[in-house]
């Protein structure tokens, strides 16, 4: 299985090369003069934060140069995965395609008009469908395959059985799933919420305190009010799935070939730590299923210094 890891710093690249990471994905928010980090709505990918993006062609050229020094260079993928584009943002995305197509291998996209543009203007680059597009079934896979998509990143909101019914029906497409960090209760592509700025610089959240009320439609259900309140409140306020590493063996069995680590705006140390953890879990694939899960939980505690509490993606 291949590891797909996030980069937002030049130093990430050489470290990933040392670890033998097969694919590195990154984004560019090329602000023009007079603009600042507040122009987040003009970002051409879903992460507008400055720390999550590179800023210019020189950096991408340098990444390309460093990567090519490696014994086995990683594939480089540029994200253009905003969920929608107005005309101005579309022009920016197209500009990025034309500027960067010779320095990256793949484009990770979500919007259909960008796919069309890539096919016409960057035919040598592979097109990867972002999870922001939300592909949940084999007919959708077929639809995207006919548009020239070579790999699809599936949302975390599919059970192993549902993933299996997609991957086994479509052996000619490569599939990727997310394996570490961040999980939104909503489907990534179907959430239209704006994260509310926190007082710290550049951080935003949708995890804000709220009052919860239950309105019963079926009066009989009212007898369970207390337990419904407790159960749902736990999820709405505290649930924070973090990873799917225990499921890597099962994912491999059903034909998943790529494991994506989320977190372009994480620190260099954190990103490398994440990649090392996934490398380590992949070295244990000869263990049986239960042993593997136990070992993964131990590794999780060792790498992150807290218990995972079975907060799983899958």
């Amino acid at each position: 299985m291949k590891i797909v890891a996030p980069a937002s710093l030049i130093e990430d690249i050489a470290e990933y090369n040392k670890l033998g990471i097969e694919e590195i994905y990154l984004g560019v928010n090329n602000l023009t003069e007079g603009e600042n980090e507040n122009n987040k709505w003009d970002s051409v990918n879903e992460r507008f934060e400055r720390g999550a993006n590179f800023e210019n062609l020189e950096q991408i050229k340098e990444i390309n140069r460093i990567n090519n020094l490696a014994k086995k260079p990683a594939e480089l993928s540029l994200t253009l995965n905003k969920s929608f584009y107005n005309s101005r943002q579309l022009a920016r995305a197209k500009e990025q395609v034309m500027i960067f197509k010779d320095y990256v291998d793949n484009f990770i996209v979500s919007e259909l008009s960008i796919i069309k543009f890539l096919k016409e203007n960057a035919p040598k680059n592979k097109i990867i469908l972002s999870c922001i597009n939300v592909c949940l079934n084999s007919n959708a896979v077929n639809f995207y395959k006919n548009l020239g998509i070579k790999k699809i990143i599936l949302p975390r909101h599919l059970s192993i059985e549902e993933l299996k019914s997609i991957t086994l029906n479509n052996p000619e497409i490569e599939f990727e799933v997310m394996i570490l960090n961040q999980f939104c209760r909503n489907l990534d592509g179907f959430c239209s919420r704006c994260h509310i700025p926190e007082h710290k610089v550049f951080t935003t959240t949708c995890n804000i305190p709220f009052k919860q009320k239950i309105y019963f439609i079926n009066e009989e259900a009212k007898k369970d009010e207390k337990i419904i309140q407790e159960n749902t409140l736990t999820i709405l306020k505290k649930f924070n799935p973090f990873c799917g590493i225990c499921f890597i063996k099962e994912l491999e069995k059903i034909g998943i070939k790529n494991l994506k680590i989320v977190g372009r705006n994480n620190s260099h140390i954190r990103k490398i730590n994440d990649a090392k953890l996934i490398k380590k879990t992949l070295s244990l694939m000869n263990l049986d299923k239960e042993e593997y899960k136990t070992k993964c939980k131990e590794l999780f505690s060792r790498y992150y210094k807290f218990d995972c509490k079975n907060n799983c993606y899958y």
Binding site: L136, H157, E162, F190, S192, I228, F239
Partner: peptide, 21 residues
């Protein structure tokens, strides 16, 4: 404003609540 496949309601009235698909 949002849609999920991790719905909060299945088994929400039981002690076996586990928030899985």
């Amino acid at each position: 404003i949002s849609v999920t496949r991790r719905c909060i309601y299945p088994k929400c009235n039981t002690s076996e609540y586990n928030y899985k698909i």
